[in-house]
């Protein structure tokens, strides 16, 4: 018996380190650019310029981050507003978009699923079709609309046009369809009207879906690029992602990489934290929104 058990066990032990090795390489590829960026953000520019750059953090972390946050991202000839201002803009944008999308999607899904009314399906298809009209295919006319509405360089302009959401509406619709009919009838008998039912039953039951969507939509809002590039042309309205990319002098002029990397780290930290801390909902959100 012992001899029989022996062979497969040693075999599995021997093979066990191969997956770990491959995954270790994967993790290295994932983490390496982040580590180098972090190290660079703690060095002085001359330290970075002396190739090869050190791979252990230097002592200028506080100085670099302090300068970036409070005085502004300075890189060569380029100046951006203080990073905290840009982070504030990004936060406003990410939170408004996430919350706004969730609110208007849950309301429209509720209308489409729990009522019967003329043009119901027409409205549903209108929302659905927005999937096929991303910003990228309507750049110029959208700017004209925003200009006509005096929404250029406003938080409203940065957020409101992005809060229509077919994906979130579809997700909520899918979930609402699984709520048993009898639950609605029980609520009717218990004297709950549609809005009371929404608040007391539908909303509490949707909590995990809302959390999952929130993570996905926060990333979506924070990481927006083309939209703030078009609408937030004023430096005051710049998001941190745009600000960071402006600090790279693509013309080949001098770039202060320690500042760029400090800003990059600050730009990636909030969404990464949200994903790591809300991992469970994030995975659920990914899977659900792709259905």
């Amino acid at each position: 018996m012992a001899a029989q058990l022996d062979t497969p066990m040693t075999k599995s032990v021997r093979r066990d380190w191969v997956p770990h090795l491959v995954i270790a390489i994967g993790i290295f590829i994932t983490a390496f650019p982040l580590w180098v960026a972090f190290v660079a953000s703690t060095l002085s520019n001359p330290e970075i310029a002396q190739a090869p750059m050190p791979l252990l953090p230097g002592d200028r972390a506080a100085a670099n981050y302090g300068e970036a946050l409070w005085q502004g991202g300075r890189s060569g000839r380029i100046m951006t507003p203080p990073v905290w201002e840009m982070m504030f803009n990004s936060t406003v944008m990410a939170l408004s978009i996430a919350v706004g999308k969730i609110i208007i999607s849950i309301l429209s899904a509720y209308a489409v699923v729990f009522f019967r009314f003329p043009f119901r399906m027409a409205f549903f298809w209108m929302i659905f079709i927005t999937l096929m009209l991303p910003v990228e295919v309507r750049i110029v006319p959208t700017i004209q609309v925003i200009t006509n509405l005096n929404m250029m360089n406003t938080y409203a302009g940065l957020t409101i046009p992005l809060i229509a959401s077919a994906t979130a509406t579809l997700l909520f619709r899918q979930f609402f369809l699984t709520i048993p009919d009898e639950l609605v009838e029980a609520a009717k008998i218990d004297g709950a009207g549609p809005m009371k039912f929404f608040r007391d039953v539908v909303l509490p039951l949707s909590v995990t879906n809302i959390a999952a969507l929130f993570v996905i939509l926060f990333l979506y809002g924070w990481n927006q690029y083309l939209w703030p590039l078009l609408i937030g042309t004023d430096a005051r309205m710049q998001t941190i992602v745009i600000g960071m990319s402006k600090m790279i002098d693509s013309a080949g002029g001098p770039t202060d990489w320690n500042m760029v990397m400090a800003t990059a780290i600050l730009a990636l930290l909030p969404p990464v934290l949200v994903v790591v801390l809300m991992q469970r909902w994030f995975v659920k959100g990914l899977v659900e929104t792709e259905k």
Partner: peptide, 15 residues
């Protein structure tokens, strides 16, 4: 492994 997914494309490009 999923961390890079959370990072903005422009920031990933900069790294």
């Amino acid at each position: 492994l999923v961390v890079p997914y959370a990072i903005a494309p422009a920031v990933a490009g900069a790294l």
